[in-house]
Amino acid sequence: MKTNRPKIKVPLEGIDIVLDLISATLLILLIVFTVISYTELPDTIPSHFNAAGEVDGYSGKSMIWLLPAIGVVLFLGLYVINKFPHIHNYMVNITEENALKNYRFSTRIVRFTNLFIMVIFGLITYSIVESAKGNNSNLDSWILPFVIGTSIILPIAILIYQKKINK
């Protein structure tokens, strides 16, 4: 895809650095938690939960590595994509005058997405480990609303905000 969008480097602001650091820290904690918990897990662990938070699928304990592995790939992928904001999808024509504002907004959205993915993966992994140990993680009742809120409602609110700033 060839575009005539300006290729500029978006200077990082404090919030951008904080978001990247928190996301990276959560990813490291997810991996460390999985390493520490792995030896304590039974051979069969919960691998799927229904909408009520009840376990309705089981797998071998090696499946606990799936979320940290996907987390690493997503974190690195989103981090790299953020280095090229001119290839992001925009609902407005990008010009020299509005490039910085739109690129900054787009890269920040990607940073927040990375953060939410790390939070969700951490909560799910914690819930799986606690359920496998026979404990109630107390996350079952609100993890689904959290995921729906961060993956559906939040992006809609962000799009409305973006429309407002681009008027």
Rank of each mutant, 00 (worst) to 15 (best):
L26Y: 03
L26R: 02
L26C: 10
L26Q: 12
L27Y: 08
L27Q: 13
L30R: 07
L30E: 09
L30C: 06
L30I: 04
I31Y: 10
V32M: 04
F33C: 01
V35E: 05
I36W: 08
S37L: 02
S37E: 12
T39S: 13
L41T: 02
P42C: 01
D43A: 05
T44D: 08
T44N: 12
I45K: 02
S47V: 03
H48Y: 06
H48S: 11
F49T: 07
F49S: 04
A52H: 10
G53M: 09
G57I: 07
G57H: 07
Y58K: 08
Y58V: 13
S62N: 11
I64P: 07
I64F: 07
W65G: 08
P68E: 06
I70L: 15
I70Q: 08
I70H: 09
V72W: 02
V72P: 03
V73C: 01
F75N: 13
V80F: 14
I81G: 10
I81Y: 12
N82Q: 15
N82V: 06
N82R: 14
F84C: 10
P85C: 04
H88I: 01
H88Q: 01
H88F: 05
N89E: 12
N89F: 09
Y90S: 04
M91D: 14
V92N: 04
I94H: 09
T95W: 01
E96Q: 08
E96W: 03
E97V: 07
L100C: 10
L100I: 07
K101C: 02
K101S: 09
N102D: 03
Y103D: 02
Y103P: 06
F105C: 00
S106D: 11
S106K: 07
T107Q: 14
I109M: 13
I109Y: 13
V110S: 15
R111K: 15
R111L: 12
R111H: 12
F112H: 11
T113D: 11
I117L: 14
M118I: 03
G122D: 12
G122E: 07
G122R: 00
G122Q: 08
S127G: 05
I128K: 08
I128C: 00
V129W: 02
E130W: 00
S131M: 06
A132V: 09
K133D: 00
K133S: 07
N135F: 05
S137W: 07
N138E: 14
N138K: 03
L139P: 07
D140G: 14
I143T: 10
L144W: 05
V147S: 11
I148T: 13
G149M: 06
G149Y: 08
T150R: 01
I152L: 14
I153A: 15
I153T: 14
L154C: 01
P155M: 07
I156K: 03
I156L: 15
A157D: 00
A157C: 14
I158D: 05
L159Y: 10
L159D: 06
L159N: 03
I160T: 06
